[in-house]
Design a protein around this nucleic acid. Sequence first.
DNA 1: TGTTGGGCTTCCAGTCACTGGAAGGTCAAG
DNA 2: CTTGACCTTCCAGTGACTGGAAGCCCAACA
Lengths: 131, 131
Amino acid sequence: MNIGEAARRSGVSAKTIRYYEGIGLIPAAGRTRSGYRAYTANEVETLRFIQRARSLGFSVDEVGALLELWRDRSRASADVKAIALRHVGEIERKIAELDSIRRTLLDLTTRCCGDDHPDCPILDRLASEVG
Amino acid sequence: MNIGEAARRSGVSAKTIRYYEGIGLIPAAGRTRSGYRAYTANEVETLRFIQRARSLGFSVDEVGALLELWRDRSRASADVKAIALRHVGEIERKIAELDSIRRTLLDLTTRCCGDDHPDCPILDRLASEVG
DNA sequence: TGTTGGGCTTCCAGTCACTGGAAGGTCAAG
DNA sequence: CTTGACCTTCCAGTGACTGGAAGCCCAACA
């Protein structure tokens, strides 16, 4: 099947499939006589795997590692779990950071009356750290 | 003062200060006879403002808008509040997304025994969406 | 006076993971 | 035989920096 069909079936855009091939995340696809890339159902499965891993926030490098483990029948599930747990750690760090920012901003916005006057605790805080 | 000192006092790296000047976030600094950028205490205050706004996750464009409002004595605090509340909304959306991913991954990692066997619910899920 | 070391300058390239777009070849249908 | 959808490659841009090369400037010390 052509790249457009593979894109539709996998949820990965044609542009992105070419990009993945370019950076070596997936091997170069076969070609028709006229030079079009041709995909098998198997390759589409790989693309779906990639799509799901990316949507869980794994970096392209991590996805590469997960793909290798997926293909490796003698893998240790511990290796997969390690990648996933490291990723969970990063996500939790990000959530904590965002939540701290969120709490700060909610505090400031609550105290800003938001009318047509210039007085504003938000700007005060940005200008001087205490606010 | 030189750019290095301004960087130290503001918490914005020299490289980044030049970058901010290049994209027009701050006006071009004055120069000494030999071409070194020269900063006043006031300009360092502006840099500190930028640094704090960036650390609260505002985009450089939003920081530009906040700077304009900061300098505008006839601003309406409602305009500042609107920017901040929109930003809070984005943060909450990101937190929700990360939390959903986190819950999925924790579920999968809990069910993955993480030993030297290949069986792995994490890979199963990436391979077939149900898992 | 010479030189050493740090700081400053500009400019180009790289990061991450794509995305947009131009210029042109291919294919099936009408 | 043409239309329109598809495919190809290649280059450039995104955000917000960061690294590094090549070269000028300046204060201090022998």
